[in-house]
Nucleic acid binder design. Structure first.
Lengths: 137, 137
DNA sequence: GCTAAGCCCTGTAGTAACTACAGGTGCAAG
DNA sequence: CTTGCACCTGTAGTTACTACAGGGCTTAGC
């Protein structure tokens, strides 16, 4: 046969390197029930397969988009339990989108005020600092 | 004398109500060194004065603007130690402003992708969910 | 003056989502 | 067969609070 294509269905914990995820984070996801416990080698090392990696990538991508782990859990449950979870998944994502938009609005408010106050201090040499005063107001 | 105007320089822990800050949070700020320990009544209750309230308002306002407690600590130290801390305070605030702007940029990226994927699921009835697929990608 | 309600007290533990050890073993290459 | 790296478990630390549990103080009403 040309190489050991089917001979190694299990990869080592290079899953971390392949996904760019910290190995301790992978174990954390296992501990909190987002990843299934993988089989072990005789020595007790975890042996992940392609499905673990696929699931981990799902988690990491959702995290990049700012989903909380609890939301990720919900999404994965929907994917695992339903055949066509599209509507429910969309609801979770839409709710998260609203959260993100709220956070953006909050941060923009902060940004505006910070800009104003920093600008008032532009010279940086006055005895009474307008920035400090505005914090004490 | 017309009432006890100077007879009560110390207020009760109504400081919480007056500032809208949770009393347990006030004590937390004391524990982490942002607020000085106030004098106590004979019974051991904290007796705050106007300076405590002023300082607490500073903290709360800085928190509203998204300063981390460590940044607040720095700001308060500058205010306490220097006569004219304007320049240094401005530097801290400017650094924080950059953080805020980075966060806004991150969130807007999330927002854009979420909007796109949620829109792809608009009908919500397809067997293969584009949103789920994009998370698995 | 006394009592009961309602504050306030201390200290600990819980939250989110990791991260960083310490102290020990497996494994694979040379 | 040895050496060094990767992996193992479990605990504790991070941020900024919040939520108790189990008491003590205070004060308004009687």
């Amino acid at each position: 046969m040309s190489g050991n294509i089917a001979a190694k269905p299990l990869q080592r914990a290079e899953i971390a390197k392949r996904t760019g995820c910290n190995l301790e984070t992978v174990r954390y996801y296992e501990k909190v029930g987002l990843l299934p416990e993988p089989p072990r080698t005789e020595g007790g090392h975890r042996a992940y397969d392609a499905n673990h990696e696929r699931r981990l990538r799902f988690i990491l991508r959702a995290r990049e988009l700012g989903f909380a782990l609890d939301e990720v859990r919900t999404l994965l449950r929907l994917v695992d339990e339903r055949d066509a979870p599209c509507g429910e998944v969309r609801d979770v994502a839409a709710a998260h989108l609203r959260d993100v938009q709220t956070k953006i609005a909050d941060l923009r408010r902060m940004e505006r005020v910070l800009k104003e106050t920093v600008a008032q201090c532009a010279d940086g040499a006055r005895p009474e600092c307008p920035l400090v005063e505005s914090l004490f107001r």
